[in-house]
Design a protein around this nucleic acid. Sequence first.
DNA 1: AATATAACTATACAAAAGTATACCAATACT
DNA 2: AGTATTGGTATACTTTTGTATAGTTATATT
Lengths: 120, 120
Amino acid sequence: MSDLKELLEVKKCPRQYVLAVNDTLNVISGKWKMPIIASLLYGIHRFKDLQENIGKITPRMLSKELKELELNGVVERKVFNTTPVRIEYHLTESGKKILAVMDSMIEWGLEHRERVVEVG
Amino acid sequence: MSDLKELLEVKKCPRQYVLAVNDTLNVISGKWKMPIIASLLYGIHRFKDLQENIGKITPRMLSKELKELELNGVVERKVFNTTPVRIEYHLTESGKKILAVMDSMIEWGLEHRERVVEVG
DNA sequence: AATATAACTATACAAAAGTATACCAATACT
DNA sequence: AGTATTGGTATACTTTTGTATAGTTATATT
């Protein structure tokens, strides 16, 4: 295959795919996104509980990340009119489906570790 | 389910899964990893060609990222004893399989965009 | 009136990631 | 000797991401 053909082939890589990958990366990149999403998946929904479960995250980061996830349509914030006020964070339908991406990442990561150990 | 049970359930989330996800994130996170891996997948292997294909990347970043990918066992660097010297970067077996992760990211990203457009 | 609790916010800072611009080394060609 | 080519490095920045530490608001409890 000629260099030109290859170049054209690359240019054909659909823009919507690039956008889709970037959207996904935005949602899962960073130190705390995965721990937060995983905790929500496991049924932890309140600020203090998330903070305790994740361990070393500061309230500033937890707040910031939850806001970003909410803005990205991955998390929904629910306010309950009790005293003291109770607030719960839940994954949206999209949010729950990130599990599929996590699964593919786990699969790749495990296989890769085995291969690296074999090779040296 | 009690809070305690939930907590224990979370603690059961296997450490090797956490490591696997982190390994994968390390390989795909950042502004340039995906463009580089995609270019390699599409058959572009030389430094200058990668630089041209990716567009706005500086040689410093391309060099740095390729080194990191090599260190992580995702890319292999081959030196050809020609004049002038020819160097090629190729994905390892592990590297090629990142396509599966990319696919799941594309799928999630596309679905998520549709859902966000629907909801508003 | 003092203390406790949930759910944060504010300010200042440090570290990591990325950019801009210029330069280098080896070899071959003219 | 001067120029071109490939495959990078070096230095100095700017931006983004994450940390540390303290404070706030609203209500209820003692």
